[in-house]
Design a protein around this nucleic acid. Structure first.
Lengths: 155, 155
DNA sequence: ACGGACCGTTGAAAATGTCAATCATTGGTG
DNA sequence: CACCAATGATTGACATTTTCAACGGTCCGT
């Protein structure tokens, strides 16, 4: 404990080998921070962030989600969804249609321009994802997604 | 209810099966949001959050990290670390010691009370983690941690 | 000894997150 | 049918977190 290692600063490794190195919550937070940053950087050239990309994605593949459903799915406060949709709607990428089955609710639909932009943005997103998962085999990739789904949707 | 409706609202499943359902960045974000919330709730009774818990953890297992290292490791701005350490130091859980090898740097060390609190908080943290991973075998748990480490530490 | 780089700290601005109140609408109950 | 509690969207206020730029103190190579 004393001789050579005592006053040494921890290399990158000392921290990784600490208690936190096995802490799932921490690993998730850090992995999330890095991937989010990478995704935002890649989406920036399309004028999107991970958030707006997610909303656009759901609007674009015809799921016709309600804003309330969006909020729940993306784990956002409904008021944040308002702002997000406002932004996309002003850029004519998305339309609010009042749900015929429930006139309180707005259903989100992508415009042609929206689907178009999404298609391009999705390529960027996929490229990022592949880059992040470069050190991982496709099988492990799928396994990771499966395990994350268990954490992300615990029912 | 019939299964044929065209204008029907998406059930929970329709959104999960959308493009985002396979999006790693999204899954990470959502899994992170849920686990973070669970961790914060569990740590609250010890007066900690995931952030302060992480700092305390690193101080408590004798890694003697520098604030700069803390910032890098936790992916925080150095100024945020200042606030975090301030909080823990005022509660006498942690001490700032100027690094003898570099007098610009502060090395973080846990007090006895700090180690004590950490020991208790860690139990809560572990309980949460086990709860979150209930639907997963221990092997898969370890595999998940390994894969997340690849994303969290890409070198 | 000098100058550029680095550490911690401060303060401010921007972005996000959280909450309560409101309006219009819905669905169920008497 | 009329009522009313519950729900979706929206707004505005407020707290928390993130992001930057600037600064004094210290280190290190030249």
């Amino acid at each position: 404990m004393s001789a050579s290692g005592k006053t040494r600063l921890p290399g990158r490794d000392a921290l990784r080998d600490s208690v936190l190195g096995g802490d799932l919550v921490f690993l998730l937070a850090r992995a999330n921070a890095l991937t989010l940053a990478a995704a935002n950087a890649a989406l920036a050239e399309h004028g999107l962030k991970a958030r707006s990309y997610s909303v656009l994605a759901l609007a674009a593949d015809g799921v016709r989600p309600t804003q309330r459903e969006l909020a729940e799915f993306l784990r956002l406060d409904p008021s944040q969804v308002v702002a997000l949709v406002d932004g996309l709607e002003q850029r004519q990428l998305v339309e609010r249609r009042t749900d015929p089955a429930d006139r309180r609710a707005n259903v989100l639909v992508a415009t042609d321009a929206g689907r178009d932009l999404f298609a391009r943005a999705q390529q960027a997103a996929r490229a990022v994802e592949l880059g992040l998962l470069a050190p991982v085999t496709p099988e492990e990739h799928e396994r990771l997604a499966g395990l994350l789904r268990l954490l992300a949707f615990p029912d």
